[in-house]
């Protein structure tokens, strides 16, 4: 931390240009995501709409993760579990509607699927959060990872729902008026959800709650000294983050119509985290930009070679070694540096 007393830029001015830049980036991203896939789809490039739908859904998960990672400094490595839970909340009721059994939950009703996805994610986040948040640092990373893997193995062992082989969703969640079977509708739903969730996270990050989380990220001892017990706020954020990822899982299940435990493998959690960090955890749109870069890169590289993980891994290592604040740092010179540890 070097201190310069000589040059003091006008920070109020700085903040204004930052706000302008934020608005510009927001407008640009919203426009691109609204127009590009639609045009591509209508001109017959249906495949690209698939890419964009997946991208937008994973962006939702990344934004959800960033609520605790970027804002709260909690490095959770288990968020793929919520995606899986959300997806199985669609798959399992649909399976029973098709093949019978478990009458209590057997339905194609989308509202029921959605409610189930959100409730189950919230509960799982609450229970694992209560235990995980008692720890810090490396412990927290590993414990969130372990709990996610626990869900993974639990689903694998459920032979009824395909176990390792996964489960095909024969009928998508049914809603009045709209039909998720229409790719463009599904994309529109996902896209609008993303915009709403980004806006919600934006509001939260500037709220009293958000400020408290930032304080806990920055200096937890200080929070205690001013009389704040951070635990309950962190737990609330942890649950909110899980619910957002559960929602992403609900959408992903409806998008792929094939779900398997592989969705919740810990390497999937790693991918969501990479999106957040690549894009820049301190920047509102960072996770979205990260998801765009990740998915496009994955697609382009895998077109070139089956060994695309190699250049991708190298890129990741190099970006950690040489690009310290994520891709979005190019767009926004952020003041905040993620401090050592949590």
């Amino acid at each position: 931390m070097t201190t310069t007393t000589s040059a003091r830029p006008d920070h109020r001015q700085n903040r204004n240009t930052e706000t302008t830049r934020l608005l510009l980036v927001s407008a640009l991203l919203v426009l691109i995501l609204a127009i590009l896939p639609t045009v591509l789809y209508l001109t017959g490039h249906t495949f690209w709409l698939d890419i964009f739908t997946r991208l937008v859904i994973l962006a939702i998960a990344a934004v959800g993760l960033n609520l605790i990672l970027g804002l709260g400094g909690m490095v959770s490595f288990g968020h793929a579990a919520y995606i899986g839970l959300g997806a199985y909340a669609v798959g399992i009721p649909a399976y029973h509607s098709t093949y019978g059994g478990m009458d209590a939950i057997a339905t194609y009703n989308g509202f029921f699927h959605l409610a189930l996805a959100l409730t189950v994610s919230a509960l799982f986040a609450l229970v694992t959060g209560i235990i995980s948040l008692r720890t810090r640092g490396v412990n927290f990373i590993m414990i969130t990872m372990a709990f996610a893997q626990m869900m993974y193995y639990a689903i694998v062992s459920l032979e009824t729902y395909g176990g390792d082989d996964g489960l095909t969703i024969d009928v998508r969640s049914e809603f009045p008026i709209i039909s998720l079977d229409d790719p463009l509708t599904l994309y529109a739903v996902s896209f609008i959800s993303l915009i709403i969730i980004v806006f919600l996270v934006h509001r939260i990050s500037n709220s009293r709650f958000g400020l408290t989380l930032q304080g806990a990220r920055s200096n937890e001892e200080r929070m205690l000294a001013i009389g704040v017990n951070c635990y309950k706020y962190q737990l609330a954020a942890f649950v909110m983050s899980g619910v957002i990822c559960g929602y992403a899982g609900f959408l992903l299940g409806n998008f792929t119509t094939f779900i398997s435990p592989e969705m919740m493998d810990w390497t999937r959690s790693g991918e969501i985290m990479i999106m957040v960090i690549l894009g820049g955890a301190t920047f509102l749109w960072g996770p979205v930009i990260g998801a765009i870069v990740f998915i496009i890169l994955e697609y382009v590289l895998s077109e070139v070679t089956v060994y695309w993980h190699l250049p991708f891994g190298l890129l990741l290592i190099f970006s950690v070694l040489f690009l310290r604040n994520g891709l979005a740092s190019v767009l926004q010179r952020s003041h905040s540096q993620a401090g050592k540890g949590q």
């Binding site: 500037n206 709220s207 706020y233 609330a236």
Partner: peptide, 12 residues
């Protein structure tokens, strides 16, 4: 408590 999620605290 700080369970207020919507109102902008930076303008409060």
């Amino acid at each position: 408590h700080a369970f207020r999620f919507w109102h902008n605290a930076r303008k409060d």
